[in-house]
């Protein structure tokens, strides 16, 4: 076998083994999307119940709470970037980080200083490489976020939240994540988490169906047990945790969906490459055969000519 043919055969073999890996990753991602969507939907009754309760308390009582009051002068903002731990997901993390950069630029232009919190090693590496200070980062939870993680993150974010203090406290908290719309559409977006704007149940739940109660905006006159302040005190941190959890779950579903799409493209490209190399290898083989035939015929002609000359 000629050298050229050997080169092509080698390339075909290595592309085939890569293709196998891509295909396997695609299938794994596809099965995980379903799980991620199911978990996201399982969390939505809680999110809906909390949203409704928080809206009810906020709408009918004149309770002032530190988490809902807007600060007059916002100096410090915290940004939580929810990114992936692993690559191989196409433009997923690039799109997310671009969104985060946009938000940070926006905040800086308004004269606010930004504290960074990151989830996932991709976001962490991005900012560490650029020598930006990260207040706190979590890794290893992006693919399988649990309620405990959301609680831990919520606590860390709320720790320094203090709009009333003039200098050091954080006045606003933003969250950047990828919203899962469908398995082909996922939009990176940012939202302000605090001070609180209570959003509709439809928005709070990610991909889940909103409870039928949400289309009745008028709340009955609740009796608060023990008091409206105490209820709000207990509800708000949970509401924030639940918002973080739903963002985490939505990001996890988007990550798997992006990975599946990226791996599908990679598999298709590998197929194309294999086809191209097979064609080239065939041409090389045919050229070699033609060459050999020409040599044999030429050699025989030369022999015959020299025999006739004797």
């Amino acid at each position: 076998m000629g050298a050229q043919q050997r080169v092509f055969k080698q390339k075909i073999r290595s592309t085939q083994s890569l293709r196998k890996i891509f295909k396997a990753m695609e299938l794994i991602a596809a099965s995980r999307i379903q799980k991620a969507i199911a978990r996201s939907q399982a969390a939505s009754p809680y999110a809906n119940a909390l949203t409704r309760a928080v809206s009810a308390v906020a709408s009918e009582s004149n309770v002032d709470h530190v988490l809902t009051t807007e600060s007059d002068s916002v100096k410090h903002a915290a940004v939580l970037v929810i990114g992936p731990d692993r690559g191989f997901a196409g433009a997923y993390s690039a799109n997310l980080l671009r969104e985060a950069e946009e938000l940070i630029r926006l905040l800086r232009n308004e004269g606010k200083s930004v504290d960074l919190f990151t989830i996932g090693s991709k976001a962490k590496n991005y900012y560490t490489f650029r020598d930006r200070k990260i207040e706190k980062s979590w890794t290893g939870i992006s693919e399988n976020p649990l309620a405990e993680h959301a609680r831990e993150i919520g606590e860390a974010l709320l720790e320094n939240f203090d709009p009333e203090s003039a200098d050091s406290g954080i006045d606003e908290i933003y969250i950047v994540f990828t919203r899962f719309v469908s398995s082909v559409t996922h939009d990176p977006e940012y939202r302000r988490l605090l001070p609180l704007e209570v959003v509709d149940a439809e928005e709070a739940s990610t991909g889940g169906q909103a409870g039928e109660s949400s289309d009745a905006p008028a709340f009955p006159l609740y009796e608060f047990e023990p008091s409206a302040e105490a209820v709000l005190d207990a509800l708000l941190p949970r509401y924030i945790d639940s918002r973080i959890l739903s963002a985490l779950l939505s990001a996890a579903a988007s990550e798997q969906a992006s990975r599946q799409a990226a791996m599908k493209t990679a598999t298709d490209n590998a197929d194309d490459l294999i086809k191209t190399y097979t064609r080239l290898a065939n041409t090389a083989r045919q050229a070699e055969i033609t060459q050999e035939l020409t040599e044999i015929v030429g050699g025989a002609d030369a022999l015959a000519a020299s025999a006739a000359g004797d």
Binding site: Y222, E223, F224, P226, V231
Partner: peptide, 19 residues
Amino acid sequence: RTLDGEIGILPGHEPVLGV
């Protein structure tokens, strides 16, 4: 059980939000 003690709810109870 709420912070103030036990609360029993029967059908027709008035709206309550409790911790």
